[in-house]
Design a protein around this nucleic acid. Structure first.
Ligand SMILES: [Mn+2]
Ligand SMILES: [Mn+2]
Ligand SMILES: [Zn+2]
Ligand SMILES: [Zn+2]
Lengths: 124, 124
DNA sequence: GATTGACTTGGACTGAGTCCAATGTAGGAT
DNA sequence: ATCCTACATTGGACTCAGTCCAAGTCAATC
């Protein structure tokens, strides 16, 4: 456990955020000025491998890193500003995929992304 | 309607494929050797705007272009080889997101991506 | 045949991410 | 306390997907 890794973990800890790697880097630099982008990517990759952090690809640009890995959840994304909320739909979408629609796959996971417009962007 | 656009439309027509822009370009070049990448991107963008083609981001690399835009469906992706199948789960995931989980958003769309291992990759 | 505006082209450019050789360092061994 | 070594970190070059743009082409109209 190096100071670099500790700083990356601290950045992700606490709030339920969905930061890009560069946002993580910017916040890490605030605490440890010389930390490099490469180390942030390495550490994020390790956290993902350990299952401590999830990668989410809600927009089609940068991946986002989600520290809320232990409570299964899905995402609601604003199509205008990109805001992301964790959501917990009822029902189990895996159960909604009949065998006849599995084509012999062993299905292990499902990601659900809701899209819409957030109250801010709706100009309420 | 130029010959370039016609060729891009032809590449996407027919089978239910999920090609990347560069794969579309490669197949287009086979029919019209001098067609440029820029034109393929332009044409794909227009088809997407017109609602004739969908962009899907099942893997975290290149976007894929899906000509099956008129029948709503979701995707089942092999985590090993990237194979993509169209699937039609039962139930409506929008109905599974209660108002209390909408946070004031106007939710208009939902994407479901199932992940697993295809029969080929399972080494059956 | 000239004009014109839309379409196409190639190449430069960007953003996100990966890779790598060189350097630094934590912490166990002596 | 010092030395060693395996591992972590660094910066920069590189890749890949995609965007942008100025210049060139082309087809339709006049
Ligand atoms: Mn989340
Ligand atoms: Mn499809
Ligand atoms: Zn918004
Ligand atoms: Zn497979």
């Amino acid at each position: 456990m190096t100071s670099q890794r500790r700083v990356v973990a601290e950045v992700l800890d606490g709030e339920h955020v969905h930061l890009t790697a560069d946002e993580v880097h910017a916040r890490a630099v605030a605490k440890l000025p010389e930390i490099s982008r490469a180390t942030v990517y390495n550490t994020l990759g390790e956290l993902v491998s350990l299952g401590e952090v999830l990668e989410v690809a809600t927009d089609k640009r940068a991946k986002r890193y989600d520290p809320n890995a232990h409570q299964p959840h899905h995402h609601l994304v604003c199509a205008r500003c990109g805001a992301i909320r964790d959501v917990h739909p009822t029902g189990n979408p895996l159960a909604d995929l009949p065998d006849s629609e599995r084509f012999g796959f062993t299905v292990s996971d499902v990601e659900v992304t809701y899209r819409g417009v957030c109250p801010n962007c709706a100009g309420g």
